[in-house]
């Protein structure tokens, strides 16, 4: 673990989330240091996705969600009156579990984020499109198909397009919600490879239901169970010498 700057990129403090009156997350507290990939693992419905969506305040779209506690992005409170939610979401880019290309061309998909921010300069957009597609290992496959509908791409390409579309925002943190759940091994490998490169310029929080992926791709791993963060540690240590018996059971495949 070589990355340990003084202020963590993300600091989650006593985060509680309820849907209606049902608690989904209970007192979750942890830090995400800059330039790391942190995986969140846990069985289905353990609160991983809710936690991720609490970070960019996407849970708010549904009024049934209630949130308490605080998240700090580079020391700045995310849940605060002065926070502009739209610009917050640009700093914390998100990729969803299923490919979600918008029904428009590849180019329009990619440039939507910058255009929302009123970036119109053609050269600027072209530079961003090329660098984002390259970072997502998609440039060679689509560089001649930018005008085609994004829906014509294969599933794996679509998901990398979504990654590239998020990178177009030049985010500080990348939030990935089971980004490889429906993908073939080759596409998965490409995305994981992309993440290793991206780690140099940003910070990644990766929710995955694939324990092996967490072991392969991340520096830190947290284990969530029924809304509680059971254990968070260096990935290798968590998998080789888990402190909590529940973690041991899960990573060895005894449940979940």
């Amino acid at each position: 673990m070589e990355h340990h700057p003084e202020t963590p990129k993300l600091k989650i403090e006593g985060l509680n989330v309820w849907i209606g009156t049902t608690p989904v997350l209970t007192s979750v507290t942890f830090d995400v240091p800059e330039h790391t990939i942190l995986s969140l693992i846990g069985p289905a419905r353990s609160g991983k996705t809710t936690l991720l969506r609490a970070l960019n305040r996407l849970n708010e779209l549904n009024v049934a969600f209630r949130t308490a506690g605080q998240v700090y992005l580079s020391g700045q409170p995310v849940y605060g009156n002065g926070m502009d939610v739209a610009s917050l979401r640009r700093r914390l880019g998100m990729v969803f579990s299923t490919p979600t290309p918008l029904p428009m061309s590849v180019w329009d998909n990619l440039t939507l984020g910058p255009r929302l921010k009123a970036v119109q300069s053609r050269t600027e957009l072209e530079r961003l499109v090329e660098s984002s597609l390259k970072a997502a290992f998609l440039w060679d496959e689509v560089k001649d198909r930018l005008r085609e509908s994004a829906l014509k791409l294969s599933g794996g390409q679509q998901q990398r397009l979504c990654l590239a579309r998020t990178l177009m925002l030049e985010p500080e943190v990348l939030l990935l919600d089971e980004p490889c759940s429906g993908l073939d091994p080759i596409s998965t490998a490409k995305i994981e490879e992309a993440l290793q490169e991206l780690k140099r310029i940003l910070t990644v929080v990766l929710v995955t239901n694939n324990v092996k992926q967490a072991a392969r791709a991340s520096d830190l791993t947290g284990f969530l169970l029924m809304g509680e963060l059971v254990e968070l540690n260096d990935t290798e240590e968590l998998f080789t010498t888990p402190q909590d018996p529940r973690t041991a059971d899960y990573v060895s495949g005894r449940f979940g």
């Binding site: 979600t100 918008l102 929302l116």
Partner: peptide, 13 residues
């Protein structure tokens, strides 16, 4: 609904 979330996640008002 997913498409709406995409837009919000891209920082749309």
């Amino acid at each position: 609904q997913g498409l709406r979330e995409v837009a919000y996640a891209l920082g749309a008002t």
